[in-house]
Structure formats: C-alpha cells, structure tokens
C-alpha cells in the first residue's frame, strides 16, 4: 500500500523459477500426448490428451504468467470465466445433443 504506481512500475513479488525446466516439462508432456494419440484406446486416449492439455495450460498460467503469485481475486477472475463456460455448455448441450432437429425436406 505504500508503493506508488508512478515510481514503481513493477511490483517485485513475483518469483522467477527455472523457466527452461518448465519448458522441458511442457515438451515432454507434448510428446506424451502425441504418443497417446497414436495408441488405439480411443476413450483412454481422449481423456489423457485433454488432461495433459489442462496440465500444460495450468503450468503456463502458473509459472509463465505468474498467476501463482497473484492475489486471490485474479484467480477468481479467471476461475469465474471458466465457470461461466461450464454454465454455457451445460445449458446449451441438451438442445444440441438430446433434442433432434427435424428437417423439412
């Protein structure tokens, strides 16, 4: 609260981690998801691939975008955006999947 914005362009409460290590982990995850995609088991593969995608995204958000060190209200902002998408998906999906459109030909 003591800091003024004009004199202090960057508040240094971020920690810098070893970014190259994060990058290496991301690459490994990418390769794993490619390999999983080549194996036959459809259901398992899809779940694996999307779990990996979420893990990768979370790593980028946490370490590259430094959300890990940001206050909770910014977590809430991002979290609520994702929550809204769940609302949207759940509200719309019955009309797309369960109610069959009847076309007049």
């Amino acid at each position: 609260m003591q800091e003024t914005i004009e004199q202090q362009p960057v508040a240094n409460y971020h920690r810098h981690v070893n970014y190259i290590k994060i990058w290496a982990i991301l690459l490994v995850l990418l390769i794993v998801s490619l390999i999983v995609g080549m194996i036959g088991y459809q259901f398992f593969a899809v779940w694996m691939i999307f779990t990996i995608a979420v893990v990768k995204a979370l790593m980028v958000v946490a370490y590259y975008m430094h959300l890990l060190w940001e206050p909770k209200f910014l977590w809430l902002a991002v979290g609520f955006a994702v929550l809204c998408l769940f609302f949207l998906f759940l509200g719309v999906v019955p009309d797309i999947l369960l109610v069959k459109l009847q076309l007049a030909h």
């Binding site: 509200g91 719309v92 009309d95 797309i96």
Partner: peptide
Amino acid sequence: GDPILFQH
C-alpha cells in the same frame, strides 16, 4: 448446424 445455438 443449429439455429438455436445463436439464440443460446
């Protein structure tokens, strides 16, 4: 596609 998508 589906026109109801836009309504949603």
